[in-house]
Design a protein around this nucleic acid. Structure first.
Lengths: 243, 243
DNA sequence: TCTTCTTTTTTTGTATACAAAAAAAGGCCC
DNA sequence: GGGCCTTTTTTTGTATACAAAAAAAGAAGA
């Protein structure tokens, strides 16, 4: 294991107390989201267990969980690796999320309690603040929370669960394919516009706001010729961060 | 463990050779789908292991898998049980499936290869045959296969995966809430109509066919006052098939 | 007879040991 | 130097043992 990886994992491990499989999954997921564990990174059970101070049994459960969330790849008799979604899958993920989140926004329009709306607005404000302050990790967190709130408030819990999954998967591919020069994916006023339509109760306008928001986000990605590079990377087993 | 349950599981166990976690999950899922393991049924790890001839390690993995598919409920320190989706969740599942499968059908219209179309038609014919022959389990299998084929052929693999999940969940609630007098949920000519629109390339007609098909199916269910009964059952831990 | 508390049994959570498979390293020949 | 085979090491798959929690059974009292 390389030093960088090990140190990252040490930092990621819970300071004290017992850790559950959920804790480990949370930490690893977050590290992937924050691009501290790049695609292809190996996640051996023993190492993970040592870092978090638990045995393989617990680690195994968390890995299974992460695999079902499409965060890692888990093939029989092989070490789990951080997944590298292709550009094709990226487009498909956005497509699916437009459909699902658009529908949820439409269903939610005009049916949100004042408290829920206020909570959403608070998140939007926090995101803007973090952007103005140049704290991109915080901005991402706040943006994610906003969309997760949307999923939670969905009257249809099944659709809501699907959105939670899609928000995670989109975040991963955004982190992966963001144009290199780009400092932030913040889109001025977009969340505000969505919230206005949700409050006023215009379902189709809310759906449209979601579509525009996601189209804008997808447009900030570099989805051109990397395809081949990524595929070769995973096929040849070339891992960037460790031997 | 009651005799009925144990015998059912014996029957369900693979005849010979080693069994993987996937095998066990497949068998249990199928038994749930065929209503041979009613909601609330306990699935203790040791018993399952004994029946399939493997240790708890393997069983645990299969249970985790089934939980992520929403087939069973798995709470900390409690035995896994076959899930009993509420009527509310049933409606939400249908709603979600209408959205996703409708979109897939629309995207697929006019884009299916002749071979794919032929395979779909073969499944529809097999279903009709099984219905005419009065073999309901076989009819269900063929109907399921048809929708799974649709999911597989989806150009959007992410949406396809979501549909696979939703088809399973719908089947479970159909088995659970089917009106008691009803012999079959077969809907004359519906699959044929869908396939015609898929072949002719009329996207909105294909979407409409899916909507009608699912609405018709939902209408065959008894979604009235049981809500309370089911909830009490799971809350009070009253299990029908075993002590 | 019903309730409540205690004791026993069952069942899951976690760690660990050993076998099998895959990956890596080393040595060999060209 | 580069490719190929053998050996070693690493890593996962599975079974099992023991502790902790939950469920069930039993006993005592009203």
């Amino acid at each position: 294991m390389s030093n960088a990886w090990h140190e990252e994992m040490q930092a990621v491990a819970k300071s004290g107390g017992r850790v559950s499989d959920r804790d480990i999954a949370d930490k690893v997921r977050h590290a992937v989201l924050m691009q501290r564990l790049p695609p292809g990174t190996k996640l051996p059970e023993i190492t993970l267990g040592e870092v978090f101070g638990v045995s393989r049994s617990v680690v195994r459960k968390s890995l299974t969980r992460l695999a079902s969330e499409h965060v890692i790849d888990q093939r029989p008799n092989q070490v789990a690796r951080v997944r590298a979604p292709s550009v094709e899958e990226t487009r498909e993920t956005f497509d699916a999320r437009r459909l699902v989140e658009g529908e949820i926004a439409a269903q939610l329009a005009g049916r949100l309690s004042p408290e829920a709306l206020e909570a959403l607005e608070r998140q939007a404000d926090l995101e803007t603040e973090a952007f103005r302050g140049g704290d991109e990790p915080a901005r991402i967190e706040h943006s994610l929370t906003l969309h997760h709130l949307l999923a939670e408030h969905s009257p249809n819990r099944v659709l809501g669960g699907m959105l939670t999954d899609l928000v995670l998967r989109t975040s991963i591919v955004v982190a992966l394919y963001k144009r290199s020069g780009l400092a932030s994916c913040y889109q001025e006023g977009q969340h505000g516009r969505l919230l206005r339509h949700l409050a006023s109760g215009d379902a189709e306008a809310a759906r449209g706001a979601i579509h525009d928001h996601l189209n804008g986000l997808e447009a900030l990605l570099d989805l051109s010729p990397r395809e081949a590079r990524i595929d070769l990377m995973s096929i040849l087993g070339h891992t960037p961060e460790q031997a």
